[in-house]
Design a protein around this nucleic acid. Structure first.
Lengths: 131, 131
DNA sequence: CCTAAATAGTACTAAATAAGTACAGTATTA
DNA sequence: TAATACTGTACTTATTTAGTACTATTTAGG
């Protein structure tokens, strides 16, 4: 099946939850709100933080909040934060893998086009659209 | 990583190879042309056949050929043939899975929009575009 | 300054999926 | 009727994903 990771799915749910947060919201509360297990939320937040999609505050009254307005964060951003660069196949330019057939492959470079089209589609939908 | 199966990637290579086939082309020859292992080609062809993307002829001088003109077969068709219905998450309408959070999920149904956008993008690129 | 709350980072285990292989069966044509 | 090539099923192995656990670090407030 062609699909995003479960974690990516969770991540969108988390992001949507954070839209309604005025103050920093701790992982534990996010877990309660969304039904996603606490340890999993924790793991997710690290990825989202590293990608700069959320801000964190440590200590008492700490937690997470969105780093930008909901309508500026796209599904493409979330997928990239959780799963790394979007590369439908290993022969796409920004892929982390290397294709072993690369040198004599009949579709060399053609997937780039498909990839771009998909990324474009994913950039059109924002967190605000998901709420 | 957000990507298609390796088999789907192979499948496009196979389809592109078949574009140049006047007669039916046996799996073995497809394997030679593309560098994809013969047993894997065999497996692929079954999926492509079932999906109606290729035609088969048994016996001597048998093999496979495209069931429609290359410009009418899309990447979406190939993905669906190999991986089943395109459903980015399990809460998308045509998904085979069921989402266990479905009833209280904050993003209920919102992924449909994303899914449609992606499918649309995938339908715009054809086998002819990949050659 | 000390304690409790909460994030940050790393490493590990288990489950699910994908990839590859093997083999026996069936149809077709020369 | 023999050789060729598709058809179908089952199995094994490798890879990826998901989930868990634990320790360290930071911060606010009494």
């Amino acid at each position: 099946m062609f699909k995003v990771n479960k974690l990516t799915d969770y991540a969108t749910v988390v992001m949507v939850d954070l839209v309604s947060a005025d103050l920093a919201r701790p992982s534990q509360k996010i877990a309660n709100n969304t039904g996603i297990p606490y340890p999993t939320v924790n793991k997710l937040m690290k990825d989202l933080l590293q990608a700069g999609l959320v801000r964190s505050h440590r200590g008492i009254n700490g937690g997470y909040s969105l780093a930008s307005p909901a309508h500026k964060i796209t599904i493409a951003d979330i997928i990239q934060a959780v799963e790394g660069p979007i590369a439908l196949t290993s022969c796409v330019n920004n892929s982390l893998d290397k294709c072993s057939y690369e040198n004599f492959c009949a579709v060399q470079g053609r997937w780039n086009r498909v990839n771009k089209a998909v990324v474009k589609a994913l950039k059109k939908v924002t967190v605000a659209d998901m709420t």
